[in-house]
Amino acid sequence: MTTSTTEIPGYTSGTWDIDPVHSNVTFTVRHLGVSKVRGRFDTVEGTIVTGDTVHKSSVTATIQATGVNTNNEQRDGHIRSADFLDADTHQTLTFASTGVREDDGEFFIDGDLTLHGVTKPVTLKAEIGGFGDHPSGSKVLGVSAKTEISRAAFEVGPTIPGAVVSDKITIELDIEAGQQQA
């Protein structure tokens, strides 16, 4: 039996809906090896289930590929095109956790990421922001997570050289979720 050595104040088991208004999914990629381009996905939805222990928790999330936003419409169009995400064919990115684990007081969410029609295992390093009360009287949960993926592993932009856009992409999530009412 896995036990947590880290106390999570206010930990509450339940089912939580990701709040797209108060959540962010962002990415960073190097351009020409000298600068970083940052962007976000404007549409994310999903569910977090907190079990009776954190290790029995799970998460599923769906991100709309057409919602990519780098604050440059021309670049966004290129990222949505067949050169990168091919958003007309692969309309969503999905994540489904396969486990939550703790190592030295740090939490990790293992799962399967499907991007560009390719599914690969990824690990997100997670920081539990906490559990709290919304002014409306409902409960909220906050969690942040970060991972790094390979463009090539997901067959994203295979004709774009790494010297132009790096293979390594950092993905960061800042999620707020509201507890479903019983």
Results as ranks from 00 to 15, higher is better:
V37F: 10
E176N: 06
I128R: 12
D110N: 14
F154P: 09
R30M: 08
T119L: 04
T94K: 07
I149W: 00
D17H: 01
A87W: 08
K139T: 15
S97T: 11
A152Q: 09
Q180N: 11
V21F: 01
Q180Y: 07
S23T: 04
V122L: 03
G77R: 15
L141N: 07
E172D: 05
H55R: 10
G77S: 15
L141G: 07
R38F: 15
V25F: 00
T94E: 11
L124D: 02
I8Y: 02
G132H: 13
Q64I: 05
I175M: 07
H78T: 14
P135V: 12
P158G: 12
T53S: 15
V118E: 09
G130C: 10
A153M: 00
I63S: 03
D88Y: 05
E102I: 00
D52M: 11
R38A: 14
A177V: 04
K146A: 09
H22M: 03
I109P: 00
K168A: 10
L141D: 04
V59Y: 08
R30A: 11
Q180R: 15
G10N: 04
N72V: 15
T2G: 03
T5E: 08
Y11M: 04
Y11D: 01
T62K: 07
F41L: 06
R75K: 15
T159C: 08
D88K: 12
D83P: 10
D52I: 13
R40F: 04
F95Q: 03
A153R: 00
D174N: 09
H116Q: 08
K139F: 10
D42H: 01
K146I: 05
T94W: 09
G77Y: 15
A87C: 07
D42P: 06
A145M: 10
V21S: 03
V59N: 07
Q179S: 10
T147K: 02
L85K: 09
K125V: 08
S81P: 13
L93R: 02
L113A: 09
F84E: 11
V21Y: 00
V118T: 14
G162F: 11
R101F: 02
L115P: 06
G117D: 06
S97L: 08
A153T: 01
T147D: 01
P161G: 12
V122P: 00
G46C: 05
T123F: 07
G129F: 03
S13D: 09
P135D: 11
N24C: 03
T12K: 08
A152L: 08
Q74F: 15
F27A: 04
F108G: 12
S35E: 08
S136K: 13
G178V: 04
S23I: 00
T62S: 05
M1I: 07
E7V: 14
I8E: 02
V122G: 01
F95I: 06
E7Q: 12
H116G: 06
T94R: 05
F27W: 09
E127T: 15
D19I: 02
A182P: 14
R101T: 03
T5M: 07
E7Y: 10
A96Q: 14
V44K: 00
V100A: 07
D110W: 02
G105F: 09
T43A: 12
S57H: 09
E45K: 07
P9M: 02
A152I: 08
D19R: 02
S4G: 11
A126K: 04
T12L: 08
D52P: 10
Q181Y: 08
T147W: 06
A96D: 13
P161Y: 07
M1R: 05
H55Y: 13
